[in-house]
Structure formats: structure tokens, C-alpha cells
Amino acid sequence: MKRLNRRTRLLILTAVTAAALICMYVLGLAIPDEAVEGSFLEAGEPPSFEHIFGTDSLGRDLFTRTIKGLSLSITVGLVASAVSAVIAILVGLAAATGIKGIDGFINWLIDLTMGVPHTILIILISFALGRGFTGLLAGIAATHWCSLARLIRGEVLQLRSQQYVAISRKLGKSNRWILAHHLLPHLVPQLLVGLVLMFPHAILHEASISFLGFGLPPEQPAIGIILSESMRYLSAGMWWPAVLPGAALVLLVLLVDKLGDELKMILDPYSAQE
């Protein structure tokens, strides 16, 4: 068999990672809510062939709950990072219009948002918006756009000063044409990678805020909720509700992170040809 070159292997790896994530997501959506209802006869059982993650104190199958939780996490991650990316690109472009006042204000806003610890800010925003799914999403979206916005701003400033952009203007092209044809194509890979790398952050924040009780309501099968419940039974020797869903969350985060790195390798012109 012919040995595959690094780029082909990278592409295959990326496809596999993406497929694993999609499987997780679809599986979680496909599981009906009734499947998570448990029976008290099976409460607190350790992992077995019937329940591979064991059952929790209410007799619910932990594996199904975990998968549903991961699926929810992916939704949160997707929405939050997509919204953050949109904010980031708008802010980045606005900052790069060249108007000093706007740029200064946006830089100040970025510094302000980054200066407050994320977790506290998310808790405040989520709490103010009545917790739940929307509160949590708003909180995460409002805190995660900063670093990407700063990156986009820097990139746009650098692109705007390029000679070929100045030449384009002298060839009679409008600002909008230059934005669409010269600037945006350079920003898309940055944005895509930034979005994917933001995803694990968003997921972990969602889990930690739910764990602390400021996020999703207790009946939602979220990983943060499962972990927070597990704390009560940990001292009674029930390790599985804490360890296994926690490990699943870590696996999800690692997978997404890997996907981001792979995409970066593929899109970044410095490593694309390897």
C-alpha cells in the first residue's frame, strides 16, 4: 500500500474527528426523553453491561443522560461560538474602519470585558436574564468574542495597509468591493479556526456555570447538572456519576480542540503544504 502523505492523513483525521462529534450530537438528539426516566428499583447501580455508566440516585441510566448532556453542550458551544464569531467580526471590522473614536471605544470595551473574570461575568449575565438556556447562551456569547475580535481587528488593520489594497482603490474599486474581495477572504480561515477553538471554552463554561447552579435548570440532562448532583453521593462511594460523565466531557473538549488544531494546520498557509 502506498503511504499516505501528511496532508491526506490530516484530512482523514479531521473527517474522523468531525464525524465523531456529529455522531455524539445526533445520538443525543435521537434519544427520547422517556429513555432518561429511571426506576427507583435500579437506583445507584455501579457500571454494568446493562448500564455501562451505571445509574444515578434516581435510577436514571447515566450513559443516556451523558450523551444527551454532551449533545446539549454541543448546541450551547455551537450557538455561543457562532454568536461570538459574528460579534467578533462586526466589532473587528468596525474597529478597523479607521475612525479613531470607534477604534478606541472598542479597544476599551475589549479590555473591560477581558479584565473581568469570565466565570463571574457569565454568572451575572445569566442570572440577570433569568438563568436557563437563554441566560447562559447570552452570558457565554457576551464574554467570548473579545480575543477573536482583537485578532480580526489586527488582521484587518494589517490588510488595509497592504499595497494591493491601495492599488485596488486607485483602480476605482469601492470600499465595499475591497472588503468583499480583498479583506474577507483573508479573514475566513482565521474566523473558522477561532470559532472552533472557542467552542471548547464555551462548553466548559456552560458546564461549570450549570455545576454552580447559575445555568441550566436541574431537570435538564446537562453535564454540569450531572456533576453537581454527583457531588452529593460522592462521599457515599458512588464514584461513577462523577468520573464517567466528567471523562466524557473532557473527551468532547479534546476532540473539538483537536479538530481546531487540524483545521489550523490545513488552512494556515505556512503548514498547508506539509
Binding site: 497592504q162 499595497q163 492599488i167 486607485k170 483602480l171 476605482g172
Partner: peptide
């Protein structure tokens, strides 16, 4: 605004060309 009747040709062509564009697009600009 519009196409300038005075065109400047720069010293470094590699800076004056968008690295993501094929040359056909450069001329079509």
C-alpha cells in the same frame, strides 16, 4: 474616486499582488 488616470507601479511586485488571487483575477481587477 473612479479609476485614477495616474497609476503608480511599486518597487516590490510581491507586495502589490494579493497572495490569494490567481493572476487572471489580478489583471481583471
Amino acid at each position: 474616486s473612479g479609476v485614477c488616470p495616474v497609476q503608480l507601479i511599486f518597487q516590490h511586485p510581491e507586495k502589490a499582488l494579493n497572495p490569494r488571487w490567481r493572476m487572471r483575477r489580478v489583471l481583471e481587477e
